[in-house]
């Protein structure tokens, strides 16, 4: 019984200290934001590897998600003779939910895991210590540019996802299943609200980008410097990021659309 209690105690303490380290890490990272923004070269390189290289998977997934939405939506809506609202349904579900959430999940799997592995391996091979001894702060040089790149890319990736998704929905709904094209677009245009739908979706994607990048970088930086430690940290990045995305999505949705 005592050992049971002490195990619980230990894991609570470990979780709390890790959270504390994570917060300090974030604070240090953010404290360099300004100086890193003054060196756009550092960020642009990371924008490429974090953002641009993720575009392909985002585009393909967005296309398929939109096409499935088109199919499913058409079958349900046509029961009620409301096929014309297909565009609204697709656009609303993509812009409000699927765009930010699915692209954040993909982002965590594609970019987040590689950030963790990269930083974890740099730690394991003493590159971070080496930089410290050269009087270069790795948080400023390595972590902060990646953090900013992640925060900037995520909303853009979510926007691409939603846009491609809508095109996919149109492809299936209009070109394949014969929904009236004029109705499809005009209904969408009149029902989707800039503030309620688009801006809220953008806020979500910004929050997800922030959280996923933070988790990825911190897990890498805090990894045990061995190959096993890095591989575990990479797994944790994907798992924790996914939980964080889905949990925060519920909270944000409740706050934005829940009339609470």
């Amino acid at each position: 019984m005592i050992t049971f209690l002490s195990t619980i105690g230990h894991s609570v303490i470990a979780t709390l200290t890790k959270t504390g380290r994570g917060a300090l890490f974030l604070k240090q990272t953010l404290s360099y934001t300004f100086s890193v923004l003054c060196q756009p070269r550092l960020i642009s390189k990371q924008l490429f590897s974090v953002g641009v290289l993720t575009i392909l998977i985002i585009t393909i997934s967005g296309l398929f998600v939109g096409m499935v939405l088109g199919l499913q939506g058409y079958y349900i809506l046509s029961d009620f003779g409301a096929e014309e609202t297909l565009g609204v349904m697709i656009a609303a579900s993509l812009v409000r939910e699927l765009g930010p959430v699915v692209s954040a999940l993909l982002f965590a799997g594609r970019a987040g895991s590689s950030l963790t592995a990269e930083i974890g391996l740099m730690k394991a091979t003493e590159q971070l210590s080496g930089m410290e001894m050269m009087a270069v702060d790795p948080i400023q040089r390595i972590v902060c540019p990646r953090f900013l790149a992640g925060c900037l890319s995520m909303p853009l990736l979510a926007a691409i996802f939603s846009m491609v998704g809508i095109l996919g929905g149109q492809l299936v709904g209009v070109s394949l299943l014969g929904v009236d094209e004029g109705a499809f677009w005009s209904q969408m245009q009149s029902s989707i609200d800039f503030y309620d739908d688009i801006l809220n979706g953008v806020i979500k994607s910004v929050v997800f980008g922030f959280v996923v990048t933070w988790i990825s970088l911190f897990e890498g930086y805090d990894a045990i410097p061995t190959s096993e430690g890095v591989s575990r940290a990479t797994t944790r990045t994907v798992v924790y990021s996914s939980f964080a995305i889905l949990g925060m999505d519920f909270i944000l949705t409740a706050l934005m659309f829940g009339d609470i």
Binding site: M122, E126, Q127, G130, M133
Partner: peptide
């Protein structure tokens, strides 16, 4: 550094 610690 013993390991070199070069940036890879």
């Amino acid at each position: 550094f013993q390991s070199g610690a070069l940036l890879t």
